[in-house]
């Protein structure tokens, strides 16, 4: 990827400047984001909180290069994402970003293993290596033995972990998770959080996570509060050590 340019020491991993997002137009227009400025450094674990409808998911989708902002600049590793073509953004997602959706978005009627293999296929990883990596990723999320089950045969928590394995299998620099514990009970939620923490501490993966649960947010190093399309406040999480 020559387009994602020299990683300059000075530029942060993620830099949002004056990001706005407007859905629709005219009197019915919804201003989901009203000028968000945000900086995230490599290796951080950031939790995003805020009331429903405050723009958290909208912001995450822009961060994940899944959606384009109406105005403002997004720099990823110093590169202006707004200036990239669709295909270049696809390559950005392919090589650097892991995204875990609130609704998982696994392919139905497809085994867990094949779901996890999918991003590797697009990366052109040869079959043997692909299988091995996908198995390892499933093992890492505690789904050894569930490789050949389809999403319909898995519990919500298990599907969540398959989605996590799929995001992690490419060893991304950033993992973005939109309410990863949203539909789980607190025990299952804690398992997921432990997993995220281990990715962050052991593999140095930068993590951005949306959650409604202050307990879950407590795992993060930094907590960002959204309110009505703007970042309202920022504060340290429990793990904010140094």
């Amino acid at each position: 990827m020559n387009d994602t340019a020299p990683e300059s020491i000075s530029s942060p991993l993620i830099l949002l400047e004056g990001i706005t997002k407007v859905y629709g137009s005219g009197p019915a227009a919804v201003h989901a984001l009203k000028g968000v400025d945000l900086k995230i450094d490599k290796g951080e674990f950031v939790a995003v909180m805020g009331p429903s409808g405050s723009g958290k998911s909208t912001c995450m989708n822009i961060l994940g290069c899944l959606d384009t902002p109406t105005a403002g600049a997004y720099r990823f590793k110093g590169v202006d994402v707004g200036g990239l073509s669709r295909d270049q953004r696809a390559l950005l997602r392919r090589n650097f970003l892991g995204f875990v959706f609130q609704g998982f978005n696994l392919l139905s009627r497809t085994s867990a293993l094949e779901n996890v293999e999918l991003p590797l296929i697009y990366r052109g990883v040869p079959a043997g290596e692909r299988h091995a990596k996908a198995r390892d990723a499933l093992k890492a999320v505690g789904l050894e033995g569930w490789e050949f089950h389809t999403p319909a045969e898995l519990s919500g928590g298990q599907q969540q972990r398959v989605a996590m394995a799929r995001a992690m299998v490419i060893e991304p620099e950033v993992l973005m998770a939109d309410e990863p514990t949203g539909n789980l009970d607190s025990t299952k939620g804690r398992e997921i959080m432990d997993l995220l923490c281990s990715f962050n501490t052991e593999r140095g993966v930068t993590i951005v996570m949306v959650t409604h649960d202050p307990g879950m947010a407590g795992y993060a190093g930094r907590i960002i509060q959204f309110l009505d399309g703007l970042i309202d406040s920022e504060g340290p999480g429990r793990r904010h050590a140094s």
Binding site: L92, F101, Y122
Partner: peptide
């Protein structure tokens, strides 16, 4: 939806 998923994990339009 499936295409959305594929695009989200880094498939290019052409692929």
């Amino acid at each position: 939806r499936e295409i959305g998923t594929r695009l989200a994990i880094g498939a290019r339009e052409g692929e």
